[in-house]
C-alpha cells in the first residue's frame, strides 16, 4: 500500500473575522502534482502558506510521511519545524525577488540552500550549483553575476534551481508564472513540466490560470470562499465539472 506523503485534516485559518480557509482535508501521494485553483480571495494562498509553514493555522492537522517517518507538522518545536522546512520542503514564490537574495550572486543563491543543510565543501557546492544553473537553462558563465542583471524569466528559473537543488520531498509553487510576460510563461512552464517528469517531483501548485493546471497537475482542487468545492483528477474536473462555480471557471478559460 502506498502511504500518502501528506495528509491534511480539517485545516482552518481565519484572519480576525475573515475566513482564510475552512475545514480543508486532502492527501497527496509521492510523485503527484496537485493543483489548487480559485479566484483571488478564495483561500488558496492561505492554504499553501499553512501547508508550507509560512502561516500558523487555527485548527486542523498536517501530517507529512517521508521515508516512513511521520511528522506532525503543527505539533513539533519551532526548531524542528524550521529544520524540516529547510531539508524536506521548498517554496517557489510568485515573485522571484521574494525567494532570492538580490545582492548575492546566482551561484551564492543556489549554494545557500546547500549550505543551510550542511554542505561545507566549496568545490562540491560550486559544481552542484553549476549543474543546476545549466539544468534551468541559464548559461553557466552567469554563475557569478548578481540576479539584478537577470530578466524576469531567468530570475524565476534561478529560484526554481535554488529550490530543487537539495531534492526536497514536497515543492510548493505559488503562481510560479503569474508575474511573467506571456511569452516567457511558456518556457518556464515547459521547464517545470520537464523537471517534474525527470525528477518525479511531488508538487502543490497554486494558480488562477487553468491552463497551467491542465498542463502540470495530476489532481486538482477547486476553492471558493475558503472551502474546497470540488476535487478529483484534473482531466476529469476540467472536462466534466460538477459544480456550477467550476463550470464557470472552466468556461471562462475556454472563452479566453
Amino acid at each position: 500500500m502506498i502511504i500518502p506523503l501528506l495528509n491534511v485534516t480539517n485545516l482552518s485559518k481565519s484572519y480576525d473575522n475573515i475566513v482564510g480557509c475552512k475545514n480543508i482535508s486532502m492527501s497527496l501521494y509521492p510523485g503527484e502534482v496537485l493543483g489548487i485553483v480559485g479566484e483571488s480571495g478564495s483561500g488558496k494562498t492561505t492554504l499553501i502558506n499553512c501547508l508550507s509553514g509560512n502561516l500558523e493555522p487555527d485548527r486542523g492537522k498536517i501530517i507529512f510521511n517521508i521515508n516512513n517517518k511521520e511528522t506532525d507538522f503543527l505539533n513539533i518545536s519551532e526548531s524542528e519545524k524550521r529544520k524540516f522546512i529547510r531539508t524536506d520542503l521548498a517554496f517557489v514564490h510568485q515573485n522571484p525577488r521574494d525567494g532570492l537574495r538580490l545582492n548575492v550572486s546566482a551561484g551564492g543563491n543556489i549554494g545557500e540552500k546547500l549550505m543551510s543543510v550542511g554542505y561545507r565543501h566549496y568545490g562540491n557546492i560550486r559544481s552542484l550549483a553549476t549543474k543546476w544553473i545549466n539544468k534551468v537553462e541559464i548559461d553557466k558563465s552567469r554563475i557569478d553575476d548578481l540576479p539584478i542583471t537577470f530578466s524576469g524569466g531567468m530570475l524565476q528559473r534561478l529560484q526554481i534551481a535554488k529550490n530543487l537543488i537539495t531534492s526536497p520531498n514536497v515543492i510548493f509553487m505559488d503562481e510560479p508564472t503569474g508575474g511573467l510576460d506571456v511569452s516567457v510563461q511558456a518556457r518556464v512552464l515547459d521547464l517545470i513540466r520537464s523537471l517534474v517528469n525527470e525528477l518525479n517531483l511531488t508538487v502543490i501548485i497554486v494558480s488562477h490560470d487553468l491552463a497551467v493546471i491542465r498542463l502540470l497537475a495530476d489532481k486538482m482542487i477547486v476553492m471558493k470562499n475558503g472551502t474546497v468545492i470540488e476535487s478529483g483528477l484534473s482531466d476529469q474536473v476540467l472536462e466534466d465539472p460538477q459544480q456550477e462555480y467550476t463550470q464557470l471557471l472552466v468556461s471562462s478559460v475556454l472563452h479566453v
Binding site: 519551532e78 526548531s79 524550521r82 529544520k83 529547510r86 537574495r101 548575492v104 550572486s105 551561484g107 551564492g108 549554494g111 545557500e112 540552500k113 549550505m115 543551510s116 543543510v117 561545507r120 566549496y122 557546492i125 560550486r126 554563475i143 557569478d144
Partner: peptide
C-alpha cells in the same frame, strides 16, 4: 541564533571565494 539558521553566514564566504 536560537534555531541555528546559519546557512547564510557561509554565503558570504562563498561569495568571497568565487570573486
Amino acid at each position: 541564533h536560537s534555531l541555528s539558521e546559519y546557512g547564510a553566514m557561509h554565503v558570504k564566504l562563498y561569495e568571497d571565494i568565487s570573486k
